[in-house]
Design a protein around this nucleic acid. Structure first.
Lengths: 116, 116
DNA sequence: GTAGAGATATCTACTTTGTAGAAACACTGC
DNA sequence: GCAGTGTTTCTACAAAGTAGATATCTCTAC
């Protein structure tokens, strides 16, 4: 995220996955969500590195889940989006949409010059 | 652009500005286009660095404009998108759209948990 | 109670992208 | 030649993205 509050490409995906998790997202679900909905492969290290950065910037917040249940394994760290995170998503999308507006890729012929 | 062919956030903006230029884009117009349509400030160095990288990856192609006219200044370097560039844009948008699908930010209340 | 195995998080080292500002270049008109 | 204008190139750095290995915790089986 640069000085102007816009998100990097992967930051945006991670943040969206957190939003989708409705407050219950954690590392592994974020990874799954991105893999399923975007089709791209994701390493777990990339996810956490990004989540940490988003938290450092105040765009998400994390809390440790209680390991009360019959679950195995280490305690989950749950993430939820913060108001600043929602704003960053809006800004990022808005800036990009402005440039996509009126662009039709089907229109861009092979010589790269575009038609119509 | 990672190993998987997706564009970085700024790469995408630059590439879109090139598409919009319909083969006549050059550094300064790319900058203007991004500033006008996205609202964000852009330095010229950032634009050229990115254009060079996009060209190195075969997503755009550049040619030197003839300085035939009564124009002043150094010759323009015109950029046009290549088929691989169009494909990268499609892929990038597709991956992201998959995650945006069903997300309504107005729906994400301040506690970050989301409604409905 | 020790050994595995499963689920998750953290660490380390690195590459690629993104950014800023200054400098160089080429041309025109005087 | 000198100044002005439009443009590209260079340099050095900061931020984001990536991969793979390792550490931690909890449960179950023995």
């Amino acid at each position: 995220m640069g000085r102007d509050g816009l998100l990097g490409a992967f930051e945006e995906l991670v943040l969206l996955a957190v939003v989708r998790g409705r407050g219950e997202a954690y590392g592994m679900t974020v990874r799954r969500e991105i893999e399923e909905h975007s089709g791209r492969a994701v390493t777990i290290g990339a996810v956490y590195a990004t989540l940490d950065r988003l938290e450092a910037k105040g765009l998400v917040e994390s809390r440790l889940g209680s390991s009360d249940s019959a679950r195995r394994g280490r305690a989950r760290r749950h993430f939820r989006v913060q108001p600043a995170g929602v704003e960053a998503l809006e800004l990022t999308r808005g800036a990009r949409d402005g440039l996509w507006e009126g662009v039709d890729l089907a229109d861009v012929v092979t010589d790269g010059r575009g038609a119509s």
